[in-house]
């Protein structure tokens, strides 16, 4: 008998209204993310990506719906899930006066990492942090900060990783380096990744499935290849624009 692996993340009719009589910021969103899979959450500014991620992390309480992360219901049991999750966003900083090593030690303690010094050494080697491991985080370049943020996000070897625009404002070389690191980590650990990004090439490269959000609703979904075929487009950016601007779909040739 074949065993069915439970999803790393299950989201059911997730809804958030900031005001009782206002429009929903996220409206009945549902999806499942299997271990080892990467799901892209796409949408324009204000589509509900950040609100969704905040709810998935327990930072925001949903108005309705359910989130089950790594087998734990986030409404009642979120701290057990959070131990095995992590998050990275260029919009949330690490304490800039602390050195990179001190930052990693702080989060290693918060996540209860065993053998913390060994883990930091391994991350320093993998993400090439050695040259600035003892430098204050605030003195690093954007590319170095991104590598440190990624090292922080992986300090607890998470089974579920949430990334909010992980390569925003990076040059193409550093961006590619980050994507390769993520692919390597996913292949090595079977980690599930949820990625919110405006970089369509990144989404095409990393994501097995994509959920397109507009005004808080999932308006389409599928693998990048399925969406390209469905909209008759050569790249996801055109698909994104079709959805954002309500353009007519181009029928794919038979």
């Amino acid at each position: 008998m074949q065993s069915v692996m439970p999803p790393a993340l299950l989201v059911e009719t997730l809804t958030k209204r900031y005001a009782a009589d206002g429009p929903p910021a996220v409206d009945a969103l549902s999806f499942a993310l299997a271990p080892g899979e990467t799901l892209g959450l796409l949408g324009g500014n204000g589509a509900g990506k950040t609100t969704t991620i905040a709810m998935l992390l327990g930072l925001l309480v949903p108005s309705a719906g359910r989130i089950v992360a790594l087998g734990h219901d986030m409404a009642t049991d979120r701290f057990d899930a959070l131990r095995r999750m992590n998050f990275s966003s260029p919009y949330i900083a690490l304490p800039h006066r602390l050195s990179v090593r001190e930052n990693l030690r702080v989060y290693g303690h918060l996540y209860g990492v065993a053998g913390l010094d060994r883990r930091i050494a391994a991350l320093a080697e993998e993400f090439q942090l050695g040259d600035f491991l003892d430098r204050p985080a605030g003195q690093l370049s954007a590319g170095q900060k991104t590598r440190v943020a990624l090292a922080k996000a992986l300090v607890n070897t998470p089974d579920l990783l949430l990334l909010d625009e992980p390569t925003a404002s990076l040059d193409p070389d550093t961006g590619d380096w980050v994507r390769t690191a993520l692919e390597r980590y996913r292949a090595a650990t079977g980690c599930a990744i949820l990625l919110a990004s405006h970089n369509m090439a990144e989404v095409e490269r990393l994501c097995g499935q994509v959920v397109m959000l507009k005004q808080g609703r999932a308006v389409d979904r599928g693998s990048p290849a399925e969406l390209l075929a469905k909209y008759g487009r050569a790249d996801l950016e055109e698909v994104f624009l079709d959805i954002a601007r309500d353009r007519q779909r181009v029928e794919a040739p038979a």
Binding site: L82, A93, L94, R97, Y107, L110, Y111, G112, K152
Partner: peptide, 12 residues
């Protein structure tokens, strides 16, 4: 230090 977000999404 804009660190509160990291703390509140950790198991703390």
């Amino acid at each position: 230090s804009r660190n509160l977000g990291h703390l509140f999404v950790s198991p703390l």
